[in-house]
């Protein structure tokens, strides 16, 4: 309302990075909780990890890494005013993000099928350490999944904006910041893979 719209891309990126700081600390709290519990129950975590599907975990890692690559390539394309390429890259990212979620849901579904979910009768029969392992597994991958969904929403908007020219060669800060968010989601998964799937 006060009409002093001034543009500060550097400031916008700084703001985004500071937001990512809060995200890092948010997951950092969970990683701290994880290490606290793993220190306490090393054998149970080892055993719990062996119940997870390494193939799916690694596949999802590759999917997310690739989706990260296509986002950063989309930025390069926008910088070079290659709109069609940018749209192709961003669409690939969205598709990969969806694939990630589909794989994830199969994985969770299998766990539920085996009675491995919080408060399940089967889980209650397992040793306490394993109950905590699965509690953390569902919490951390679940919260990560929520971030993937949010990221997909944001990137869909970016796809729209690139298509309509709102994001373009001389103005792509929104895409850059959305990309930053998506990369952070990727980084968190980079940590989740060895903590859960490769713990065995």
């Amino acid at each position: 309302m006060s009409g002093h719209v001034h543009r500060d891309d550097y400031g916008a990126r700084l703001g985004m990075w500071l937001f990512l700081v809060t995200e890092m600390v948010l997951f950092g709290g969970l990683f701290i909780a994880y290490s606290y519990m793993r220190y306490r129950y090393p054998a149970e975590f080892h055993h719990g990890g062996s119940e997870l599907n390494v193939t799916l975990g690694v596949t999802n890692t590759i999917v997310l890494l690739t989706s990260s690559l296509t986002v950063v390539l989309a930025i390069v394309a926008v910088q070079r005013a290659e709109r069609k390429r940018a749209l192709a890259f961003l669409s690939t990212t969205l598709a990969l993000g969806l694939i990630f979620l589909v794989i994830k849901s199969f994985e969770w579904g299998a766990k539920f099928h085996h009675g491995l979910y919080p408060n399940s009768p089967h889980l209650a029969t397992l040793p306490p350490g394993e109950q905590v392992f699965f509690g953390l597994y569902f919490t951390m991958t679940g919260l990560h999944g929520v971030h993937v969904i949010v990221g997909l929403g944001v990137l869909s908007v970016m796809l729209w904006w690139v298509a309509t020219g709102r994001v373009r060669q001389d103005r792509y800060i929104h895409l850059e910041n959305s990309g930053l968010y998506w990369h952070l989601v990727d980084v968190i998964w980079i940590f989740l893979l060895p903590l859960f799937y490769l713990a065995a």
């Binding site: 909780a33 519990m37 209650a124």
Partner: peptide, 27 residues
């Protein structure tokens, strides 16, 4: 963010019983 995630854990614990803070489940 640390307290944010802690409070989220309390909510998850109350609704789904994830067990991180619950001594009966090893928390």
């Amino acid at each position: 963010p640390i307290v944010a995630i802690t409070l989220v854990l309390v909510i998850l614990e109350r609704f789904f019983g994830i067990g991180v803070f619950d001594p009966a489940k090893g928390g």
